[in-house]
Design a protein around this nucleic acid. Structure first.
Lengths: 125, 125
DNA sequence: ATGCACCCTGACAGCGCTGTCAGCGTCAAA
DNA sequence: TTTGACGCTGACAGCGCTGTCAGGGTGCAT
């Protein structure tokens, strides 16, 4: 299928599909005239890429991920490095989650201290 | 105090202090020769700015926040707009938190399906 | 053969900061 | 007065995408 179709079917913009290809993820065949020609397998991969992207992973991280995850058949390469990377990603996520929780309660605190609309309380340091 | 000192005391880089000033937050007096001259109050404000920045708020959001929050005495302006903004920020944070939770479990799922190092399972679609 | 939708590449812009460098004043101490 | 730390401004770069535009082919249907 052409790029427009896979774009619609995967929810990834044409722009980003080309970007992913340039970055070494998801490299479709080309027709004689140079058109990208995506297979159903490519579509599967595209969907996974989208999941990961939505999950906040960088292209660089996906680079390590995909070789182990995408394959429609069992993967045979040592995935220890990948495991490490994934664990790192989780750790990073946890870190960010914690930060954001903290932010959230801070803002909620501000909100609580906010005067209703007239002179009133202030957040004490 | 000069910029270097407030930088150390607030944990904000010199670069960012100037940036915040350019953005209209935290505008210190100037000495005759043009040096920035920060007061203790400025330091307080700087610390709050840092908190908010760490909390992931943009300068633009802080713009609305600070007039209501910073003041060392009760604030008298109507803060309804601020309240709305804060609530919006909380909502955004909640959204992002949810996304990230989802990402996290997705990755953890991948991790669980990962072969130990030899040929093995694959994530079933 | 003409048209129109769709594809191609390459390049520039913008997000919201943040670092860094250049080129040049200021100030206090030696 | 000279030195060295510190301050000033302005500007460019980079992060990781993402949109958009320009200039130009391809392919199918009238």
């Amino acid at each position: 299928m052409q790029i427009g179709e896979i774009s619609q079917r995967s929810g990834i913009t044409v722009r980003m599909l080309r970007y992913y290809e340039a970055e070494g993820l998801l490299q479709p065949h080309r027709t004689g005239s140079g058109y990208r020609d995506y297979s159903e397998t490519d579509l599967q991969e595209a969907k996974r890429i989208k999941q990961l992207a939505d999950a906040g992973l960088t292209v660089e991280a996906m680079h390590d991920l995909l070789p182990c995850i995408i394959s429609p058949k069992p993967t045979f390469h040592p995935c220890d490095r990948l495991r490490a990377r994934l664990e790192g990603e989780v750790a990073k996520l946890d870190q960010r989650l914690a930060d954001m929780e903290r932010s959230r309660s801070q803002i909620v605190g501000y909100l609580a201290d906010l005067p209703v609309d007239a002179p009133a309380a202030m957040p004490q340091d």
